[in-house]
Design a protein around this nucleic acid. Structure first.
Lengths: 365, 365
DNA sequence: TTGTCTAACTTGTACGTACGAGTGGTCAAG
DNA sequence: CTTGACCACTCGTACGTACAAGTTAGACAA
């Protein structure tokens, strides 16, 4: 709110200058600041003006004064007193992956005396920016963030730079912006996951394998890569028309109707590699509506091993997504960062194939 | 930290005196404080001393100064600056009801610029007390709380009294402690819900209707009441041995094995009124394991309309639990309380029967 | 009646001075 | 070597003055 004014009040100028010295580490934590008299001489202002500047810095927590001894730069980690709050920014507060991830995060954080500040971006960039601006205003000890539309170029790196300069650690989960791959992130090897699934389908004798992927996050891109690579390795030609791409916004409709159209047009479909379990279940409904059977007519695979309680007749062949584990790892890593310990930049969780009854062997063609 | 010293510095004395005026309501919120010059004359000190005193009061939030106009007493409710944080205390961060409730809460709160501080009690009293103590320390504008084991007597009312005295509004969801039924709460008419379900089963010709309920929350008690009342109204004798009671801790095992034992012992079971959808699905598995069919052999009802994505063969007859709505209503009511508007103490959401394919008509006996 | 201007009053910034209070080092006395 | 007086230096309190910046109400002219 101060930046609209260009008024350069003396005490504000001095305050800013001293703050810069600290932020640029010219004056190190614990080190003594120049005395009031020295500053008075240096800046050619009265001692009262210096005191006003220092008093502001003190109330902001940058320095502390000891009568008779001097004014000192605050300890590194004590610039802002810790709030014991950690923000968790998620793309959706749905009943899909979110509950397990948050419960994993919670189990670690609450054991360590932290509270969770929950934020929801609805997978929208605008809202992610809002969230971050909001969090920068607050007193937060760290952030666990699931990037929104991680495959779209990140135009708001400046906000993350701001977090860096404020010394607020953050860690990405599920994906990471390409411009910030050097920042800590916990992800799954999505490419390997769909590779395993596709390979499995091929081993069952399937050849006409459809892929259904989300186009606006890195997970979708990587899962597509794994699918294509498995086909290539098996010598099956990759056909772009065998892939249905959908966006976050049309996920409930587009895959469903497109698949039905393709089948109605007579396209031969042996098996489907779906983006995730949720989509797979949608597609199963679409298939059954056309009086085809899963897995007898069409095999299908999911991703995430979401294993909804209600699913009593089909257990998907899918990839175990240890969501709770992912939450725990992210939280533990963030705590290490808060304690200034070294952490791995890139933590990859290995995918594990879970075989259910949603796929069936075909006779060799 | 100042009180150890008895030194009566002039600016501290003046500060205290002015603070007393405000606390004793001699100077009312919004009212203008005496001007610096007047105070200078009154106390016989320099203007700088007065300014120091007022500056401290300002940073403590008691007053605010407007250049050119004067210094004013802060509005009553603004003594503690608002944090724009609202705590949500839930019993479980599971993928069951929690996601929809939190998403309803989030939709209202984030539109109004609030952040959610998420807390999890694991339905344990100890942890609920911890959470509340933690939140009292923090600067929170309000609390939405799902009481843990709401049917067990509340021994920690003193914490809620503390919240009252701090002026932190709170609202209960899903249940309310009996000693605090005068506090705002948003609940479902659970009794009516199971009444509707049981009545429906009776209308289908069922007579041997089992009930499976949770014993340590008010929801379980009320759902049991509705079940018993519907039987009574239909002239069917209530038999305590037809009810399986379980605790939070053994919910995954006890109902499952007990039902199987009862059936194996030859007990006649036409239909089951389950505590909720989750339990219902467990029981369906238990029934199918004994090579019985749902709904042909045994009809079953749920509660909550959780409608897991994965459930493709059975759609439960259940009670619509507008969880998202409940979250929204709770959040909106809490915001009203924060704005000091009047609210209803008891908001009851009417249950709605959802008919699926988990129940089938029996021939009259 | 309406609009403008000014004077009086408010708080904000900035200068100067003085002394009190606490810290840490020097140095001579014990 | 230890002790204690002393002193130079630090920040804290308190006084005084001056002017800048913003607000408000009343005087005054159109």
């Amino acid at each position: 709110m101060e930046n609209k004014k260009t008024t350069s009040l003396k005490y504000q100028q001095i305050e800013e200058e001293l703050k810069q010295l600290i932020l640029e580490d010219k004056i190190k934590p614990g080190e003594k600041m120049p005395s009031e008299n020295i500053l008075t001489a240096k800046y050619g202002v009265s001692r009262q003006t210096i005191r006003k500047a220092i008093s502001n810095l003190e109330s902001e927590g940058f320095v502390y004064a000891v009568q008779g001894s001097g004014t000192f730069c605050s300890d590194a980690s004590r610039f802002k007193k810790e709030s014991k709050d950690i923000a968790v920014v998620m793309t959706y507060l749905s009943d899909y992956i979110f509950p397990k991830v948050i419960s994993g995060i919670d189990s670690v954080l609450s054991d360590n005396g932290y509270s969770i500040v929950l934020k929801n971006t609805n997978n929208s960039r605008t809202r992610e920016i809002q969230c971050l601006e909001d969090l920068i205003e607050k007193n937060i000890d760290g952030i666990i963030i699931e990037p929104s539309k991680s495959n779209v170029f990140c135009k708001h790196k400046y906000l993350y730079d701001k977090l860096d300069s404020y010394g607020i650690p953050y860690i990405f989960i599920q994906g990471a912006y390409s411009v910030m791959e050097d920042k800590p992130h916990v992800i799954m090897d999505d490419e390997k996951g769909t590779y395993l699934l596709t390979e499995y389908l091929i081993s069952l004798g399937h050849r006409n394998i459809l892929g259904v992927f989300k186009s606006d996050d890195t997970q979708g891109q990587n899962r597509h890569k794994g699918y294509a690579k498995a086909l290539a390795d098996a010598g099956i030609p990759y056909n772009p028309e065998d892939v249905i791409w959908f966006y976050t916004e049309d996920r409930a409709v587009h895959p469903y109707t497109t698949l039905q159209k393709m089948i109605k047009r007579g396209k031969k479909v042996d098996a489907i590699v779906a983006y995730n379990d949720q989509i797979a279940f949608h597609l199963i409904k679409a298939i059954r509506e056309l009086n085809l059977k899963v897995p007898e007519d069409i095999s299908i695979t999911g991703y995430d091993h979401s294993q909804s309680t209600g699913n009593t007749d089909i257990s998907l062949t899918t990839i175990a997504h240890p969501q709770q584990e992912l939450g725990k790892i992210a939280a533990e890593t963030l705590l290490k960062m808060i304690r200034n310990e070294d952490v791995e930049q890139r933590i990859v969780i290995e995918p594990k194939l879970i075989i259910g009854n949603s796929c069936k062997r075909r006779k060799a063609t």
